[in-house]
Design a protein around this nucleic acid. Structure first.
Lengths: 208, 208, 208, 208
DNA sequence: CACTAATCGAGACGGTACGTCGAGTCTTAAA
DNA sequence: TTTAAGACTCGACGTACCGTCTCGATTAGTG
């Protein structure tokens, strides 16, 4: 998530640390008000009280800036222990849905994914700044469920990893699709139905 | 999927039907070569051998044009009868994954969804041109499975409808997330695993 | 001043005579409201309640249309017999100044002259529709002055002609320059001063 | 003749001085080749090797740009001392006629005057950039003639001023009308005749 | 009376230029 | 060396008119 550092030399005026924070906050504000496509670098720099050059010295462009500005929103997701796997899933799905109701998150997430379809570096940045960071939730949920005896321990390391990825894609993908593509509400009724489906899927015989 | 019709009645030179087709084809070509963000209206009009004004007379902007251009790609999806629900699902998931490997589809789909987060009209257009049209596949698959005895008949009309929506979001969302967000391949092994999960989920007790 | 006639054939629907008048009137109205540069053919056709094709069937373009629309304004100039050459000149200069206060005349005259600097045909059209037509005033004034004994008869035909042209250029040019370039008022005091200058010039010895 | 200055004070990159000259030169070139009505801002910017925005940052539009570009052509007019008022006038009239034979001058002068009939600011700009600047020639000619004893000293300041204006309008207006409206050549014969007329006019009794 | 041929309105068509906006870079002086 | 300020080049935007074209619908005179 870190952006390019000063070239290394130690002399000269040091970079303002406050500027970084101001820029990211300004970016989020602008996303809320304007959305991705109408957000401009000039506007962000004005809001942050910073020159455009300062901004370009730290981020390569709009995409990189927005990924960084948005990524930390996803860090707010947590997995409180609700006592059962089913309850844990419902909880995190509702948190995720709430996050996707924030305009800066919904608009930015889809936009950077769209850009990343033609930009390898951006794809990596998204994967490391967002995807991989949130897989921790799936791993943690599985461990708790195993400790509770709700799920068996999986000894095949690679199979466990594939299952983690699958579950992550099913949960995140389904919620995003429901909220942003189908444009339907992610309410408690729907979450309960979805979670039930997922629970049954997970409790079936071990996948191939 | 139809764009705005000529406002008035019968007089005046009629709109060229050929232009519509040429413009949509040019749009898809441009998406392949340039991607969403570098696609320009001027370039599309040039490729189509059409004046820019002709293009704006028929579509309000880039978003609307691209939704129409891409929507018909999705019409190529079919649900051949493979003899079992599981096989049918695997088949259509692979088709969908193949579609998402086409650059014009992957870049455009996410981009218009991103734009739609701030544009009610665009959201409706996406829903009617893409989402609702492809739900037919889920409905058809369910009917075949019921005919085969794989799934029970559901008498509660509204419940059936909610289930259709859920399954659609799970399948489409998961595949899109795997392919475009996680950036992992949708290969036969993964499809089999995912389908197995889904089958177990469906065969569990009726959802709430 | 006449515009292109129907190709010669006698059959077919004849051109509407009313349309011509409506178009020229609409052109003058538009000149008053918009000035030369913002006058558009489409706007004129709308004002005249006529299709654009009808307009182009009769005039080649904006320049030709405006010359015709404006030329007849200049026909309103007259040379009443005020009893002396000096009084006659003052009278016609004031008339001309009044004409140049009309917005459609001031804007159109200069504009078509500007266009004519690069368009031989337009130059001819201006000369025949405006310049030559108004020289009659100079000729008439000279004849009256000669009858009164204010000016000698000139027997050299060609010299008389050159003198007519010179006086026309001096009067028209000076008034136009005062009104439109220097942007100063052409009031009675100025007219008296100018006429006095001109009278002395004319009463000097015969030019070379 | 100066165009709008940078609004604020001292910070930021200063405007390129070279650009100003390049743009004005390019404008004159374009006027020669294309004439007023086919001159485009985009073309001027290309010729000058400058971005269109740079051009608009300095001039409000085509009119203002052309006035500035043409004004300095008029600065080339000079009043050499030929020994008599009559000879001085003949000389400057011939210079002015030569200037009006240059395509960029003839087309642009009339065009901006035409535009100025509907634009107060442009009228002022023409007056200050062209009219007032060239009146110096009349003033200088009068002073020389007075020194030679050809003309009396005028003590009434305001009357002298009005006379200066009148002579300027007579000379400039007549020559322009001859050259551009009547479309007749301004040759030595015509100039001699015109100058003779003017000399007699000036030597008559003092105007009212 | 039907036929013929040019007219009429409406408005879509391919173009060209408009004047504005944003991207990303560069050049100042100040810190 | 970074900073704020702002001018720079470039390229796309969406609009406005241009002058042409294609329609269906009127109008005459002619056959």
């Amino acid at each position: 998530m870190r952006n390019a550092s000063p070239p290394t030399g130690r002399t000269g005026r040091p970079r303002s640390a406050a500027a970084d924070a101001a820029i990211l906050a300004a970016t989020r504000d602008a996303l809320v008000e304007l959305g991705w496509s109408k957000l401009t670098m000039g506007d962000v720099s004005t809001r942050a009280g910073v020159a455009k050059t300062t901004l370009y010295r730290r981020w390569a462009g709009k995409n990189e800036l927005v990924v960084d500005a948005v990524a930390e929103l996803f860090d707010s997701l947590e997995l409180p222990d609700r006592g059962s796997l089913e309850a844990d899933i419902e909880d995190v799905v509702l948190q995720f849905a709430a996050l996707l109701r924030r305009p800066e998150a919904r608009t930015a997430l889809m936009a950077v994914v769209a850009e990343s379809t033609r930009d390898e570096a951006l794809r990596d940045r998204i994967r490391s700044a967002i995807v991989d960071r949130q897989k921790r939730l799936v791993v943690l949920g599985r461990e708790r469920a195993q400790a509770r005896g709700e799920l068996p321990y999986e000894e095949d390391e690679e199979l466990a990893c594939r299952t983690t990825d699958l579950i992550f894609d099913v949960i995140a993908g389904t919620v995003v699709h429901r909220a942003l593509v189908s444009s339907e509400p992610v309410d408690e009724l729907w979450v309960a139905t979805f979670t039930a489906l997922l629970m049954h899927g997970l409790q079936g015989p071990a996948p191939a």
